[in-house]
Amino acid sequence: MDEPAIVIDGVSKSFGSTRAVRDMSLVVPRGIVCGFLGPNGAGKSTTIRMIMSIIYPDGGRIAVLGGSALSAKDRIGYLPEERGLYRKMRVGDFLAYMARLKGVSSRGLHQRIEAWLERMELPGVVRRRCSELSKGMQQKVQFIAALVHEPELVILDEPFSGLDPVNAEVMRTVIQEQRDAGRTVIFSTHIMQSAERLCDRLVLINRGEKLLDATMDEIRARFSPRTVVADPIEAATDAARIADGLPGVVGARVADDGIEVSLAEDGDPQVVMAGLLKAAPLRRVGVRRVTLEEVFVRLVRRGGGEAAAAEAERELTSA
């Protein structure tokens, strides 16, 4: 069980003259939720399809659950980016068909499907044809098809796209349950809030290259801006002037929602916040947290490589 869920080692893939994935290497440990983030055309889906052995890399090596995805199909659940169902099949028959293909015995299968439909808030659709369902319902049925055989590894390509907030929340909860049950979940997404909330580890991909591969804590620590924000009750200009005189502060400016105080490399945020509280009445004060979206945008704009990541880090921390 100590063996990683996925090992990708120097993998490349081209389609004609387009290099979809370039020398990608990463390791996804077991029992975590790992997010693949990247703009459209970054190579996320190509990477996922190679992990699934639906397409094959031009070079490099991929190990899934200790072998090839082909030999471990029954232990993997997959939701592709392009959703598809047999339109004329009934929901229950479709899920039973997918479960049978994944090696689930027919004994108790019907109850298992009913339970999943209840869990995904799709009661009473088991006898309905797939074509009769809304797009969101179809997406949830496909999500169930990826999980109904209780796989060790779940790979979801853009699972939240097109879902309303209520259904997205249901899906997020189920993903967390999968992680809590010890399963490994990998998903690609554009929705940063989902990634931020769900992921233990993040892989940022752009133009076929891995830009960043770290845990959320590591990302927060690395890209945390050295900025204190405060919302004074009285005039913000006075507060900015006061902040400018505090030790470890290199500058302060008035922003839309209060003041932003930039700290020196050795500046202590606790000291600055205490100084601000003592000097002026405040509605709130705190250390500004970097959002994943900010990290993502900066990194993507900078391009690939560790140098770009370092530059983005400098930009964000000095903001």
């Binding site: 592709p80 392009e82 598809g84 169902l85 047999y86 997918m98 293909l101 496909q142």
Partner: peptide, 16 residues
């Protein structure tokens, strides 16, 4: 139909 319905990739995750 399986190609145009986009169900093919789901199937290929289960069978070769």
């Amino acid at each position: 139909e399986e190609k145009s319905n986009k169900v093919m990739e789901v199937l290929l995750s289960a069978v070769s």
